[in-house]
């Protein structure tokens, strides 16, 4: 198994080196003539007002929170799905119970208006 992951590790290395090389080549041949106007943040020609890293709507955070819960859930479900074929029926149903509990959570969040953007 470690052999397979050694390959993944090497692939990660190659996958970093190839695009890295593209940037290196371009760094070698491309001109470099920076000036303040060229480097100013692009806002369609209008001067930037205030800080560029602006604050964000809380909704982004809330949706990510909901996502996190379901992400963890699906991770639990993968071993269950792999083993499903070898399980007796009532044991398989426990996975369904697991899903149902969380679908209830989704319905609750929905009813409370958490899935609304505005």
């Amino acid at each position: 198994m470690v052999d397979a992951w050694l390959y993944i590790g090497l692939f990660l290395l190659v996958g970093i080196v190839i695009p890295g090389m593209a940037i290196m080549i371009s760094w070698l041949v491309a001109p470099r003539k920076p000036n303040p106007v060229k480097q100013s943040p692009y806002e369609c020609g209008v001067e930037t007002v205030g800080e560029s890293r602006v604050q964000f709507k809380a909704q982004y955070y809330i949706f990510t929170l909901v996502f996190l819960v379901f992400d963890v859930e699906t991770v639990f479900l993968f071993p269950w799905a792999v083993a499903l074929g070898k399980l007796p029926l009532f044991v398989a149903l426990e996975g369904i119970v697991f899903i149902l509990i969380l679908v209830a959570g989704l319905v609750y969040a929905w009813r409370k208006g958490m899935l609304e953007w505005v």
Partner: peptide, 20 residues
């Protein structure tokens, strides 16, 4: 396993409560 599900549900309800 099932308690993990309930725990996740509790996390979701908590998130709803905070955001509500």
């Amino acid at each position: 396993f099932e308690i993990a599900s309930v725990l996740l549900l509790a996390a979701l309800v908590g998130a709803v409560y905070v955001a509500y």
